[in-house]
Amino acid sequence: MACRCKYFVKLLNKCCFCFTLRTGTLLLGCIFLTWFVYLCLGSAFMMECIFPNEYQHGVKDGAPAAPKTTMVFSFFGIIAAAMVCIGVHNNNELLFVPFLTLAPFYIIVHIVAMILYSFVWIIIVLFVITIVVLIYAWVVIYSYFTELRYAYEDELPQQTFI
């Protein structure tokens, strides 16, 4: 394993304290993939059924931007979560990078949404739970990312400089 003083050490040895880190990362990737598909299809259903006349001429009040924004973020979330699943399957740590970079943006979007919804308590509770789950998933996926990244470092020949 990598030198613990030189690199950021692996944060977790196991995911959820019962699965291996690889299995936990795959489970989180599949859970997020399902969640983002659900959000994308649900927001598309909402836009079509609740706001069906949005694109017709003469309609003054259009649909709020929340379903559209949710669809866009969910589409990129589907891609990032699918890449995590493929990365775990192929042991390719570079496929984790989209999720690792998008998760902080999702957290910021949730914080902005809490402010826009005027701090309704149920929205705050749901968003805080979502933020905690995103942070936990980020830590697990980053731990597996570092494990894969430095897995073969001990097998490399040591270079000595004279």
Results as ranks from 00 to 15, higher is better:
Leu94Phe: 06
Val112Ala: 10
Ile131Phe: 05
Ser74Leu: 05
Gln159Asp: 14
Pro67Met: 01
Phe32Ile: 05
Leu100Gly: 01
Phe45Ile: 15
Ile79Met: 05
Leu134Val: 09
Val112Cys: 12
Asn90Arg: 13
Glu54Val: 11
Leu33Glu: 10
Ile135Trp: 14
Glu155Trp: 09
Thr70Gln: 04
Cys85Glu: 00
Asn90Leu: 14
Val97Lys: 11
Tyr106Phe: 15
Ser43Leu: 01
Phe8Gln: 10
Pro104Cys: 04
Asn13Ile: 09
Ala80Val: 00
Leu27Val: 14
Thr20Ile: 05
Ile107Gln: 05
Leu94Ala: 08
Ala66Val: 12
Ser143Glu: 00
Tyr7Arg: 02
Gln158Asp: 14
Ile162Gln: 10
Cys40Leu: 12
Gln56Gly: 06
Phe17Gly: 10
Phe127Lys: 13
Phe119Ser: 11
Leu27Ser: 06
Val72Trp: 06
Asn90His: 08
Cys18Gly: 12
Gly58Phe: 05
Ile107Val: 15
Val9Thr: 11
Thr70Arg: 01
Ser143Ile: 03
Ala113Tyr: 13
Thr146Leu: 06
Met47Phe: 04
Phe105Gly: 15
Phe75Val: 08
Lys10Arg: 15
Arg22Met: 02
Cys5Phe: 08
Met71Tyr: 01
Leu26Phe: 10
Val97Met: 04
Val109Tyr: 11
Cys15Thr: 06
Leu148Gln: 06
Thr160Tyr: 08
Cys85Asp: 00
His89Ser: 08
Phe105Arg: 08
Asn92Ile: 04
